[in-house]
């Protein structure tokens, strides 16, 4: 058993940060990536289009009850929470904002931790609030791998700092190195996850 999914949470400055990370991943990246980026509720899907254009992996807005599949990046649609079911299907929700955010990073991370347990990587990026720290803590408690963008490399450092304060994270990594770190971890670990059991 290896990692089965990656979840990423980002806010202020996230568009650029996501580009820098996703750009270096190969087209056939072997696990699905689910992203909650804080975004105005009136925006269309320009973020997905933009990232899809500049990245080798395919990027799209997540659709209701579609299966999260490898080589694909799923963005939470504006004004919806993104959740993963235990069978890997995607669910959306319009329930109330969580700490002022919809999509909420915590909602995505908590549901993903339940769905993938230890086979999950959670990443908190730049942002000016503290969304994501509860979710990252939950991922850690379920033995998933936790990565936080080095606050010194973040446009807004509050969110990574809050995440680092909330749990003992595995990697604190400069923005430009996160993509390569993922390539390394996934190559090393997917298909063989020794070190457990």
């Amino acid at each position: 058993m290896g990692y089965r999914a990656i979840v990423i949470g980002s806010s202020t400055g996230g568009m650029e940060a996501l580009r820098i990370i996703l750009e270096v991943l190969p087209k056939d990246f072997p696990v699905p990536i689910l992203v909650a980026q804080h975004i105005s509720s009136h925006s269309d899907n320009y973020l997905a289009k933009f990232l899809d254009n500049v990245c080798k992996v395919s990027v799209k807005e997540a659709e209701e009850k579609e299966k999260a599949s490898p080589g694909q990046v799923y963005l939470a649609p504006p004004n919806y929470h993104l959740l993963v079911e235990q069978d890997g299907l995607i669910s959306l929700s319009v329930e109330a904002r969580v700490s002022y955010a919809r999509p909420s990073i915590d909602v995505l991370f908590e549901s993903a931790a339940e769905a993938y347990n230890r086979d999950l990587i959670g990443i908190v990026l730049t942002g000016a609030n503290s969304d994501g720290s509860r979710g990252l803590k939950k991922i850690k408690e379920c033995h998933g791998l936790t990565i936080v963008q080095d606050p010194n490399t973040a446009l807004a450092e509050a969110m990574p700092r809050a995440a680092i304060g909330a749990t003992k994270v595995d990697y604190i990594t400069p923005l430009t190195e996160i993509g390569q770190l993922l390539n390394k971890i996934i190559k090393g670990k997917s298909g063989d996850k020794s070190g457990y059991e």
Binding site: L83, V84, E85, Q86, S91, S93, E95, V107, E110, S111, E114, A115
Partner: peptide, 8 residues
């Protein structure tokens, strides 16, 4: 109902 939703 969606399990993830109910659990939340």
């Amino acid at each position: 109902y969606s399990k993830a939703h109910m659990k939340r």
